[in-house]
Design a protein around this nucleic acid. Sequence first.
DNA 1: CTTACGCATCTTGTATGCAAGATTTGTCGC
DNA 2: GCGACAAATCTTGCATACAAGATGCGTAAG
Lengths: 250, 250
Amino acid sequence: MQDLSPPKNVQTSIDEAVVSGILSARIRPGTRLSENEVASLFNVSRTRVREAMMRLEQRGIVKVSPRRGWFVVEPSAEEAINVYAARRVIEAGLMRSMSRLTEAGRDKLHAHLAEEKTAIAAGDRQRLTCLMGDFHIRIAELSGNAILVEILRDLTARTILISLIYQSEFHAMQSHLGHCRIVAAMEEGDFLKAAELAIEHLDEVETGLDLTRRPDPLADLRHSLSLPPQTAVPSSNASRKPNHETNRGE
Amino acid sequence: MQDLSPPKNVQTSIDEAVVSGILSARIRPGTRLSENEVASLFNVSRTRVREAMMRLEQRGIVKVSPRRGWFVVEPSAEEAINVYAARRVIEAGLMRSMSRLTEAGRDKLHAHLAEEKTAIAAGDRQRLTCLMGDFHIRIAELSGNAILVEILRDLTARTILISLIYQSEFHAMQSHLGHCRIVAAMEEGDFLKAAELAIEHLDEVETGLDLTRRPDPLADLRHSLSLPPQTAVPSSNASRKPNHETNRGE
DNA sequence: CTTACGCATCTTGTATGCAAGATTTGTCGC
DNA sequence: GCGACAAATCTTGCATACAAGATGCGTAAG
């Protein structure tokens, strides 16, 4: 799909490598990104790594803990809610602003849905994570608006990090069907319905989160030792109903 | 309103100073921001200035021309169209997602409208520019969603830069009335109507742009010499009808 | 065995130095 | 006077050096 080779010689190769690693779920939330290590991996000095980190921090993808290190963000429950709310606002707004689906656009969406299907059949979870996020970027691309694509790309990255923290299992087929319904509505030219379906779809996913779960600081070690994830901390209230009515006064 | 003093001792004081300067129209599009000059203004080394520039570049507020310097962006016509389209999508989506207006929220909006009114009476154009942009940030703040506020804040900054390039005169009263209508609809609890009004309002402003106009490289010098702005380059097709139907297939 | 302290190590924060390229300016030739 | 060339100047790009703080480990005291 994309090329993921680190030694690409552009100005933003570091940024892209990190984002691409997150979008494909190869990098977990909370991962430390040492300036020195990244610098040697890319054969550059810390200067350029820091500049990349500054950009990534601005995008809400990494955070610095002073004199401790850079870490891939672990969105809090509140941030997770905000990310989903923002996505509902933007994606629904986007669909309502559309007036028709071109043939080229339809073909791209169909191609994407086909990829999702084969990945589900293959059961490749990493690839699925990547594709499930990409779908929403594909939608944004239909608008031809680079600004919206960028915004949704970064929100998608954060969404993936959120799901890695708060989502116990992912219902790939459910999401896939949601995507299919959205595309179908768009093909009918019913973009209001598509918008509603998009909101429902995001609700479904958000409902599947367990936001009472705390980010697990041992996740990477746990994974390295092939231990089952997070079984020691069961939480009541495992799935909530998202309440996305925005009415706060301040 | 905000404090605009440069020597504020936080980590992002440079970023804030630049953005605040743009939001209040004190910094024109195309302004060069020399690393050395900014560094001495803030009594820091170029390192921190560069880091700030990296963040601002990521936000679409400055651009670097290799080995020539950093410049406040001058959005192209296409970018201008995209900015307005993105704002329509997000602001309309935001309003449609709201279910009610709290008293505190209503009070803040009314306070803001009152400020607009007094600024119009005073005829303070810089302050007006600032307020007209702030209104949309106030709306985003109602949602309590920090992510959306950030996104709209940066889009507003770009909008101001766009208007400084492409807008010959600004119809402050027209904008103010648009804002009043939006607030009225929200007070009625009719957020669908508010969304439609927001789209109309943005359309109005976009229609008032003359996107055939090229950014004037001599603008600051011209201004310093108190010459009349841009009279030498008249352009036909002075105001267009915005076409914001998004239907591109790729 | 447990706890507290201190040093060694590793991290980022910041400044600075140098190189490469772009621009400008001054000068020379016509 | 006018245009072309060249040096001087200014810009960012990038690496490196050093300082300040956080962490962890070993050791010693209780």
